[in-house]
Design a protein around this nucleic acid. Sequence first.
RNA 1: GGGCCCGUAGCUCAAACGGAUAGAGCAUCGGAUUUCUAAUCCGAGGGUUGCAGGUUCGAUUCCUGCCGGGCCUACCA
Length: 697
Amino acid sequence: MYRHLEQLLARRVSEYLQGRYPGVTLPAIVVEQPPKVELGDFAIPLFPFAKPLRSAPLKIAEVVRTEIGPIEGIAGMQVAPPGYLNVRIDRSWLAAALAADQKPAAEILAGKMLVEHSSINPNKAAHIGHLRNAILGDTFVRLLRYAGREVDVQNYIDNTGVQVADVVVGFIHIEKKSRAEIEELARQPRFDYYCWDVYAQASRWYEEDKKNLTVRAATLHAIEAGNDETSDLAELISTAVLKRHLETMDRLDIEYDFLPRESEILRLHFWEAAFTKLKEKGVLSYVDAGKNAGCWVMDRPNKERDDRLEGPLREIAEDGTLDRLVEEEEIDLDDDSPADYESWGDNETASEDDLHANAKVIVRSNGTVGYVGKDIAYHMWKFGLLGRDFGYRKFFRYPNEHECWISTIDGEKDHPHFGDVVENYNVIDVRQSEAQNTVIEALRELGHGEAADHLTHFSYGMVVLTPQCAAELGYDLTDEEKSRPWIGVSGRKGFGVKADDLLDQLILSAKKEVDGRHPQAGDDDRRQIATQIAIGALRYFMLKYTKPSVIAFDFKDALSFEGETGPYAQYAVVRATSIFRKAGLEAEGFLGSIGLDAADVAKYLSSADADEIWELWLAASKTSYVVAQCIAATEPAYLAKHAFQLAQLFNTFYHRHPILSEPDEKRKQFLLTTVAVVRRELIRALAVMGISVPPIM
RNA sequence: GGGCCCGUAGCUCAAACGGAUAGAGCAUCGGAUUUCUAAUCCGAGGGUUGCAGGUUCGAUUCCUGCCGGGCCUACCA
């Protein structure tokens, strides 16, 4: 409702000013929230109007106040120095609307949206870095759905990459496992943990002897080609690990609709289709000299030519002898530790007259396409611009019957329609900004500016470990690492906190609390409650930081159930529920059963000491407003903050106003209504964050 | 070298478009009539918003330059 009033107010003030001062170009009306409730519920700064209207902000405010006339839901306006128009909401009007759960007619928003998130390499267990991704992505999906949008959730599976090859190498060449043995292992409940170690082992094996890298190259080649023992094994392993990822994420109520796999992007020739179009439109150009000779590249015209080619490097470059070291570690994007490659300048090769020195290589000189190329093809498909489609088959059925589909070559006849979306969000950490921009740029240069404008890189910072946390996990740190502010998670080194482990630990710790508090409850119930609390704690923890911030993971913070945490907000709801239970009332149906008298509500919300209760109502009215903000800014943290503030206001209210012992029956009804409204809105906000509330805590 | 991000209380973080007295949590210290369960509430201390300039009615926010940190910058994925 708050959002509705805000929009109405902005429109009316704008219309009024346009009418009063015809022909003057006016800035847009900005509606803010005053720092204190006493000042009002909306604030409109009029400073920007001073110049075009050649009048003092205070005067303009005064004119608007006296002349604008009545607005539904607005009680009055006040002029405040140095130039604000403060607006008060009609409290009983808003209370009635909220109690009746009235919603303004929803805007009709056509077109399907797509959120891509998780995209974990299927070669090892998911870790805390993946949790942040999946929780951000899933919450964003819930935000969009709350706002009435139709959303498909996709999880891109790179099942043909180096990371999978490494695990295959580990199983065959280091562990010397037979196919039957691997099949047996893949049936184990935490096969992904096993792979975690195998992957780390393989990485060490390469380090021991660089010649082992030839084994990896051969394995990778076999996987890409398909149709042999090695690629079958890769398929077996990656599919088993993928299932584990789905199970892990399902523990957090995170579900996917479709899993497009790189193997199908390759085998259904998505790239070839994209390549043709990219060449036609001249997006790619062939390089016949210089360091990128033989490649198809995409020029990046808006980038400055790289200055690292200046100075002494030129001389090194001129004889062309110095090649980039090929053994450098490739980046595993599931990996939050930087690959330690040489600093710039030591090993640079480039020619001064190389026209494409700054270009992005899309097709290598050996004719194979790189990751960005595949991604361009995939994104053309997403927007329905490729002219090809995947085959589809059912892959994973969630306990709630929801079906998750996977790409395949020959699919089932009947399947949902994926792709052809009007808007796409890719939840990928900030390190991929460059690659994402290249994809967006490619779409634009193909002439699909519309699609490019609707492709958003939902970027966020990494999750890293504090040195202390790393020490707790039993990792030996070098002195250099100890001196760093944080240590990157590294799948390759087997270095990190696994998602399932963290969740287990949270459940265990919540269970202890619940056991102590509710010894009379059954063990299954206690476990269920502990699980809800653990999920609440974890999801809130990952959502409370704004996207750009790097989360330095620490068990102490993550395992906390007090203060600004998920359980704090859950607890507020439990308290609200408990009031109704004690009163012998049904919390859910209460608002439907009560008829509040407008005059009474006005009385209780307008008395001298009512601001504090009003503040609670006001906060409760903001759910849709905050959701809209989160979507516009692609920032779920606003919702976390909102839920916390609402819970905080409720707790203060709870402490100050005994309800069941309230002698004035009408006031008691009013207070109960307040509780019911806040409870409903808090449950909603938490649900959008994927947090459910236990019956007792 | 270039691009992007960050620097706010002891610690971890907020502060939408430039706005009113820069707010929370944790930690520390001191309290809460044994009441709708204290996973709560109240209070206290704690700040030259990295530094220096600039733009203007007004700057944590925008611009420039420094200082410090991070990420990206491969024919890898």
